[in-house]
Structures are given as structure tokens and as C-alpha cells.
Design a protein around this nucleic acid. Structure first.
Length: 853
RNA sequence: GCGGGUGUGGCGGAAUGGUAGACGCCGGGGACUUAAAAUCCCCUGAUCCUAUAGAUCGUGCGAGUUCGAGUCUCGCCACCCGCACCA
């Protein structure tokens, strides 16, 4: 190093407190990360799921955005024009909760949070294009959403119908599922009722087939997510037919297992099925049962996990084949929303039916067996839902499940008492929310004209600012003037819709708005065509179904009405794991309750942990997802202040594979900080006077360039990190040479997407000595010398009966005979063979020799 | 309950069916120092052992396929995520 000033700087510690803001403002000033729509480079749209502005960035965000950031910076180095934007999923319940609890306005609270979180994100040095920032709670965003909603309405994809909500009779308000705890309202503690309201729906079921078919080609998505969506859409083919009921009526049922029709021993209908409702009017007991079913939450999990209960009516249904009279029940586990709201109960081959039949002592018949000889085999403790051969079923005996299904459907159709039909588990998307802090649904209710869309030139329908949350219920509903308006059609007095849209609507098109933000329309189709689809989308696995399915639907719906020309918004998807931390707690002696402590309140050393305030031990619990309620959270700001952005970023990428959980630890971040300083010191070892080459180090350097590129493209950051540690160690150990200088500056380029502040600082200091200029963020990815990737020698494992006995080195590409001879000449191997007859020798070139003896 | 996933040293993890434990953390030993911090070097799966050598066991549990299984197949167990008004 000829420049002694720079050399001296590397002898001092790297100071993130000074370097981080310096380079952050350098990037901002140079507009380094602003995407240029007019660029002729190939484009790359890297997107992480935008955050809800809860107030503070948490470690999960840091992890999510660091991954996207590394990819975005890497893509830029590889010559792509990168779009990497950020916005705010800014509508939602927490703002209303804050309003109720702290008396602040949801808007003020949200906007303040956005400012605070934006500042936090900037301190981490993310390569974001802030010029495209958006917040869904601003009329400049949701006004366009209203316009799109009206477009979908006019295309016939929006409709209204009655649907059930959780109603809190004390707070007089609709509750979200998470606000219902053990069937009671979270604030009032009152028993929650199911109540029907007129609500808005989107016809996602129109696209069920297309959403399903679209999954196949989405090979950039994890198989598990595609499978989850497939199961969620839940296409099934089965038989719909009607039972003749003893009261002279018909009862349509749907079954996915018509092959088991001979095993039917009862029929069950949902509590809100017309038959049940009719009965409830005359029979007080039936009514009591139906009312009982209305209590408790509306979630599928509660209904299906709960006890199977039924009420036996006096009705019977005639079996279409045997003519037997089957009892008709009202049952709490039958869903009105699926199929016809009525099922034939086959206890032997459906677990829910099995539990129900056991409870009500109904016959459990075997109609499927593993083997025809097992036709009379008794059942164990559960139903047998698997494959097998049909038994005890007259004309179906001996058939496979598949064939029997076809035969029953064929016969039903031929005899005209039933039809083979396709049924979907997917239901239409209910988007009505009886809340203030959301996008107002842009419709007007007129006594004369009915439901009328707000004319587009009157959009946006803006939320009123003057609302209070002192009373329960929807502030829009009781606002003195807001909802009163006139009908756009006839001019008569009319009322605004007071429901707002589900926030999943906001997140179903924000990626389009990032491409361009015209004020007169939701997006510019040309810009959207240029940037979309998103090359890489990154977010939590918890969004595997709802958000991702809704966004896929919305994109299809916009294509359907001709506004865009593609159906899939996200070419590749990556679902990252959570950030976890161990729990610190004490059990309270008096009431046995657990009191939790934050990691900041605890001194952690070795196996023990003590509370800072009293020095007494606390219990160390399991490692679980960071959550406010368990207090096992670490504040990113505190970490940035102590270690700087680069150490935090490096930690997020190290060790744990990105799709798995990442356990936070102080020791871990300290280790990362040491590495950052190590790279800094190593940069001081650049010596422009050095001469001579080091082939091993040069090979290692080029192998690392290739491997790290591969790892980043696969988002295997932990593997890239391991490679970079190896190159660092190799460069440290090597004597000065031109190869070493090259190794160090290459290392700097390779780590620059991960620890960009240090990389810029060192790059800048090395500039006079090495002759480069500009920002490292603008520098290209180093070139690989392919010739240097190949090793001359390889280590061959020698096994006897599959067990390792020795290793030898051999020239790469040695032939089988050479390797076999080499293996047999090994003393250790001979000792192991011990004179036994060699029956076979397996040789895997450049790998191993296995002697079977 | 249904659907999806995960399981490898003290810890996080690596490993196209081919040398299990790369890399990092923790821990132990040493160097440097008046001392400490920082830094550097060495060791670090378990058991046995005649101990620089060698042997056996070992990837949640139980079977199986294979010359060879962390990896493939079947059956279990534990934990995590989602279940339509949390985002």
C-alpha cells in the first residue's frame, strides 16, 4: 500500500457510526437506487412484502428486506436495471385499536409510524427507490383502488349477498376472528353471536379453474405453497343427488365418495340449511340446537376441531340403491357454504362421520377394504379413508375406489337421479369490513335506484377526518354528515356505503402502482408492461394462501377486463422463516403466572441468565418467534446503534437457511461484528508493491466468485456467507502477491451487496492505490476465469462394504482401472478385506472406490 | 379436525444416493500484554482404547430398497405455520 494515509485508516477500527450515514447520503444524492424506466438494460423487479406500519421495524422486517436488498444489489452488479421499491400497507385494525386506547386519530398514528419506520429502514442502508414510495391509506392510492373496484363491478365480478359475521352484542360491533377469544368478545367478554349482514363479495370462484391451472407453470414458487393453494382451491369431483325424504320432499346432497354409497348410514344437514330452519320454526328442541350452533366463533378451525354434535329429526331419507330409510340429522360440522349444505354420512370411511356415528350409536359399515377377504374386518378407533377394494356393495363389489366412483356417477346420470359435478372448496372473497380505517367502498344506496357506483369523476371517496372512537361501532355509520349524499342517477337523497374494503384488496395491486404512479389512473399500462411481473417476491410463509391467492386473482381480474396482459404477478416467490429468540421468565409464586422479561433486561452468560435489576436468575425458555406478548424482542435500532448496519445485515444472512427460522443471539451478532472488522483489517493488507502469483489463492478467489453468484441466485445466503468466510481466511493466511491483492478486492465486491457501507468505505480508500473510481454499488460483479475453477487433484474415498477405510489423492479424471489399483494398494484397505474374496469393485470417478468383499 | 412444513454435535447449520458434521457460534488450551481488551494460533460428535495409531456407534423413532441412505420408500413421534374479518 503506497498511500500511507489510507493504510493508517485500516489500522483503526471500522466506524459504522460515521460510515453508515456517509454512504447512505452518497447513494441518495447520486440517486443510485432509483429505477430508470428508459434504461435499455434488462429489468429486474425485486419486491418484498410491504410492511404494516405498526410503529417500529422488527427483526422479521430486517431479515426480509436484507434478503431482497442483497438480491437487488447483486442484480444491479450483474447489469440489470433494478426496481426495488417500498411502501406501506397502511390500513387496518391496529390503528383503530390505538385510537380507542390512546385517543389518537388512526391517520395521525399511522403517518407518524410510517415516518419513524422509514427512518429506521434508511439507517439499515437498503437499496430502495424511495421516489416510488406509497401508502395505501392515502386517497392518492385508495382512490384508484375505488376506481378499479368499480371496474370490476361493471365487469360483473362484484356482488352483494348476506354473510355471517361475529357480532359482539355488548360493544355492538363486528369482531375479527382474532378478536374472538373462546367464543367471547376480547374487550367486552360477551358471548359472540353469528349475525347475517349484507356484504360485498368478489367473484374469485369465477377464476377457480384458472387459478388452479396457473399453479403448474409457476415453477419459481415453492412446491409447498403451490400445494397449499391447490388444496385451498380444493377442486373435487363427486356426485350430487337428491334423497327422497319421508315428508315427500327432496334433499340434495353432495359427496366426493359416491363409491362408498352403500356404506351410508345417516344423512346430515347444516344448522342453517332450509330443512333445519323449517324444523326450528315448529320444534323448540330443533330450534334450541340450531341456536346453540350459532354460538361461538365462525372459523373453520373451531367448527372442525370442536365436538361433533347433532340433532335427530323425525325425518328419514330413502337410500337410492338399498331403499333403506336413513335417519336425518342436523349436525354442527356440516357447512352450508360447501356443496349443498347436506351430506350422506359414511362413518366407515370419513373421520367426522365416524366420530358422529360413534356418538349417536349409528351403524358403521365397511364398504372399502385393503383386501376382499377383509370384508368383515372390524374397525379400530378411526375411519379408514384410504384406497382399497369395494366390498359389501352389491354391484360395486371388487371394484377399485376410482372405478366405483365412475360407475355410481354413470348410473345416477343414466337413471337421472343424480349428476357428476365439480365442487370447489374455494369460496367467494368477502371484502366488506364494518370499520373506519380502510378504503371506503365507492357505492351509494338509493331507495329508487338501488346500489349505484360513485361516478369516477367524483373519486376518491375520501374518509372523513372528524371521527371519534369513544363509542363502539363503526364511526362512518354514526358520522353526522359523511354518509348523506345524493343519488348519482336520480339526484334523490341517498346514503353512502359505510363498509370499507378488506386490506387484502390494498395489497392485491400495490406492485402495479410501483411501476408508475400517474395521478389520473391507477397505473400506466406501458410502465406496468415494462416492469411486471415481479422477478422475485419475498415474504413470510404465513401469506402462502390468502394474500398470494388474492393478488393472483386480482391480476387475473384486471387481465380479464383488458387493463393488463399477464395473469401471474410474481414469477418467483420465496418464503422466509421467522426471527426467533429464547424466552426469559419467572413464575410468580402467588398466582403461578409467567412474567416475561425482554432480552435487554437480562444478563446472559454461559448457561445462566439473570435479571439486571436484582441480579437473581431468570428461567431460560424455548426459542420461539419474537413477539411483543412474550417480550422476546430485540429492537433493531439498539443493534444498529451498537454494531452498525453491516453487522446486523450480515447476521440476517449467516448460518440459518433463509427459509428456516433464525434464532437471534448476542453471541451471533458479536461474531458478525468481528467478521466485519476482519474484512476491514484485511483491506489494509492490499500491497501495490507486491509481486508474484499465488495459484491456489487465485483458484480459491475464482471458485468463490462463481459459488457466491450461484448461492445468491438461489437465495442461499448462508452458503454464500460460508464461502466468503473461507476466502477471507485464505486471503489472510497468504503472503503478499498480486493474487492476494486481487483476492482482497474481489472479496470486497462479493460482500458489497451484504455489507455495503464497509464495502463503499474500503473501496473509496483503496481507490488511489488500485485506480478504480465511483461507488462500489455501481461496480460490476467480478469476472470468473473458468480455467481456474478446476482442481488438478482430487481426494478419493476408499470403502470396504460401504465403510470408509482410507483416502488417497489422485489426478482429476483418472480412469477406473487406475483408481481400483490405487484402492487395492492401500494397506488399511487390505487389512480390512483380510483376505476375503473380492466380489465386486464399484468405482465412481473422482469420488470413491467401494470394494465388496 | 383439515391442509402444509421441519427434525443432523452443546447451538445455527453443510453435504448431485458416494469421505456426515464445511462455515459460524459456544467451550477448552496457548501466544501477545505489567494486566485487560482487541487480535492471532491449536483443539473441540459420542464411546472404547494398548491414545499422533486404531475400533465401534452416530443425521427424531421403527422397518425396507441399495455395493453404499442424512438423502429414496413405508409406518410412527415431536414441534411449527395456515384455516377465509390479524397483517
Amino acid at each position: 500500500m503506497t498511500d500511507t494515509v489510507s493504510k493508517a485508516r485500516f489500522d483503526e477500527k471500522f466506524e459504522p457510526g460515521q460510515a453508515d450515514p456517509r454512504w447512505q447520503s452518497a447513494w441518495e444524492k447520486a440517486r443510485t437506487f432509483e429505477a430508470d424506466s428508459n434504461s435499455d438494460k434488462p429489468k429486474s423487479f425485486v419486491l418484498e412484502m410491504f410492511p404494516y406500519p405498526s410503529g417500529r421495524i422488527h427483526m422479521g422486517h430486517v431479515r426480509n428486506y436484507t434478503m431482497g436488498d442483497v438480491l437487488a444489489r447483486y442484480k444491479k452488479m450483474r447489469g440489470f436495471e433494478v426496481l426495488h421499491p417500498m411502501g406501506w400497507d397502511a390500513f387496518g385494525m391496529p390503528a383503530e385499536n390505538a385510537a380507542m386506547e390512546q385517543g389518537v386519530h388512526p391517520g395521525g398514528w399511522t403517518r407518524q409510524n410510517i415516518e419513524a419506520m422509514k427512518a429506521q429502514l434508511k439507517r439499515i442502508g437498503f437499496a430502495l427507490d424511495w421516489s416510488r414510495e406509497l401508502a395505501t391509506c392515502e386517497p392518492e392510492y385508495y382512490g384508484h383502488e375505488q376506481s378499479l373496484f368499480i371496474d370490476l363491478y361493471e365487469a360483473g365480478l362484484v356482488y352483494r349477498r348476506q354473510a355471517t359475521v361475529n357480532w359482539d352484542p355488548v360493544d355492538m360491533t363486528v369482531l375479527a376472528n382474532e378478536q374472538v377469544i373462546d367464543g367471547k368478545g376480547w374487550r367486552s367478554g360477551a358471548e359472540v353471536e353469528k349475525r347475517k349482514l349484507d356484504q360485498w363479495f368478489l367473484k374469485i370462484t369465477d377464476f377457480a379453474d384458472d387459478l388452479l391451472d396457473g399453479l403448474g407453470p409457476l415453477d419459481g414458487w415453492p412446491d409447498k405453497v403451490r400445494l397449499m393453494q391447490e388444496n385451498w382451491i380444493g377442486k373435487s369431483t363427486g356426485l350430487e343427488f337428491s334423497f327422497d325424504v319421508s315428508n315427500g320432499g327432496k334433499l340434495p346432497v353432495y359427496s366426493t365418495r359416491p363409491d362408498t354409497i352403500y356404506g351410508a348410514s345417516f344423512v346430515a344437514v347444516a344448522a342453517d340449511h332450509p330443512i333445519a330452519q323449517e324444523l326450528a320454526e315448529t320444534d323448540p328442541k330443533a330450534r334450541a340446537f340450531c341456536d346453540d350452533c350459532k354460538r361461538g366463533g365462525t372459523t373453520a378451525a373451531e367448527i372442525e376441531a370442536g365436538e361433533k354434535k347433532g340433532f335427530q329429526t323425525q325425518l328419514t331419507a330413502r337410500h337410492p340403491f338399498t331403499g333403506e330409510a336413513l335417519p336425518v340429522f342436523i349436525a354442527n360440522f356440516v357447512l352450508m357454504d360447501y356443496g349443498t349444505g347436506a351430506v350422506m354420512g359414511v362413518p366407515g370411511h370419513d373421520q367426522r362421520d365416524f366420530e358422529f356415528a360413534t356418538k349417536y350409536d349409528l351403524p358403521i359399515l365397511r364398504v372399502v377394504a385393503g383386501d376382499p377377504a377383509d370384508a368383515d374386518k372390524p374397525f379400530g378407533n378411526e375411519a379408514e379413508a384410504g384406497d382399497g377394494v369395494i366390498v359389501n356393495s352389491d354391484m360395486l363389489n371388487g371394484m377399485s375406489v376410482e372405478d366405483a366412483k365412475a360407475k355410481v356417477i354413470g348410473r345416477a346420470e343414466a337413471e337421472a337421479w343424480g349428476n357428476g359435478t365439480t365442487v370447489w372448496r374455494l369460496r367467494d372473497w368477502g371484502v366488506s369490513r364494518q370499520r373506519y380505517w380502510g378504503t371506503p367502498i365507492p357505492f351509494i344506496h338509493c331507495d329508487e335506484c338501488g346500489v349505484v357506483p360513485v361516478p369516477k369523476d367524483q373519486l376518491p371517496v375520501v374518509l372523513p377526518e372528524d371521527v371519534d372512537f369513544k363509542q363502539p361501532g363503526n364511526p362512518l355509520l354514526r358520522h353526522s354528515t359523511w354518509k348523506h349524499t345524493s343519488c348519482p342517477k336520480c339526484g334523490a337523497d341517498a346514503q353512502r356505503e359505510t363498509d370499507t374494503l378488506d386490506t387484502f384488496v390494498d395489497s392485491s395491486w400495490y406492485f402495479l402502482r410501483f411501476a408508475s404512479q400517474p395521478s389520473d389512473r391507477p397505473f400506466d399500462p406501458e410502465e406496468v408492461a415494462k416492469w411486471l411481473p415481479v422477478e422475485q417476491y419475498i415474504g413470510g410463509i404465513e401469506h402462502a394462501i390468502l394474500h398470494l391467492l388474492y393478488a393472483r386473482f386480482w391480476t387475473r381480474a384486471l387481465k380479464h377486463i383488458g387493463q393488463i396482459d399477464f395473469a401471474e404477478p410474481f414469477a418467483s416467490l420465496f418464503t422466509q422463516g421467522m426471527v426467533t429468540h429464547e424466552l426469559y421468565s419467572r413464575r410468580d409464586d402467588d398466582d403461578g403466572r409467567q412474567t416475561y422479561f425482554t432480552p435487554a433486561e437480562v444478563n446472559r452468560s454461559g448457561e445462566a441468565a439473570t435479571l439486571k435489576t436484582d441480579g437473581q436468575p431468570v428461567d431460560i425458555g424455548r426459542v420461539v418467534k419474537m413477539s411483543k406478548s412474550k417480550k422476546n424482542v430485540v429492537d433493531p435500532d439498539a443493534i444498529l446503534a451498537e454494531f452498525g448496519a453491516d453487522s446486523a445485515r450480515w447476521f440476517m444472512l449467516s448460518d440459518s437457511p433463509p427459509e428456516r427460522d433464525l434464532p437471534w443471539s448476542v453471541a451471533g451478532i458479536e461474531g458478525c461484528h468481528r467478521f466485519v472488522q476482519r474484512v476491514w483489517r484485511l483491506c489494509g493488507a492490499v500491497d501495490v508493491d507486491a509481486s508474484g502469483e499465488n495459484k491456489d489463492l487465485a483458484r480459491k478467489t475464482h471458485q468463490t466468485i462463481a459459488a457466491v453468484a450461484q448461492d445468491i441466485e438461489a437465495l442461499s445466503f448462508n452458503k454464500a456467507v460460508a464461502r466468503l468466510y473461507e476466502l477471507t481466511a485464505a486471503a489472510e493466511k497468504a503472503a503478499p502477491s498480486t493474487s492476494r491483492n486481487h483476492a482482497i478486492v474481489t472479496l470486497l465486491q462479493l460482500v458489497s451487496p451484504m455489507i455495503p457501507h464497509l464495502a463503499e468505505e474500503a473501496w473509496d480508500l483503496l481507490a488511489p492505490a488500485l485506480g478504480h473510481s465511483g461507488l462500489i454499488a455501481d461496480a460490476p460483479w467480478p469476472a470468473v476465469d473458468e480455467a481456474l475453477l478446476v482442481e488438478d487433484e482430487v481426494t478419493i474415498a476408499i470403502q470396504h462394504m460401504g465403510k470408509l477405510r482410507d483416502t488417497v489423492t489422485a489426478p482429476k479424471g483418472a480412469d477406473k482401472e487406475t483408481l481400483e489399483a490405487l484402492a487395492l494398494s492401500s494397506e488399511k484397505v487390505q487389512r480390512s478385506i483380510d483376505g476375503k474374496e473380492i466380489r465386486k469393485v464399484i468405482v465412481v470417478p473422482d469420488r470413491l472406490v467401494n470394494i465388496v468383499a
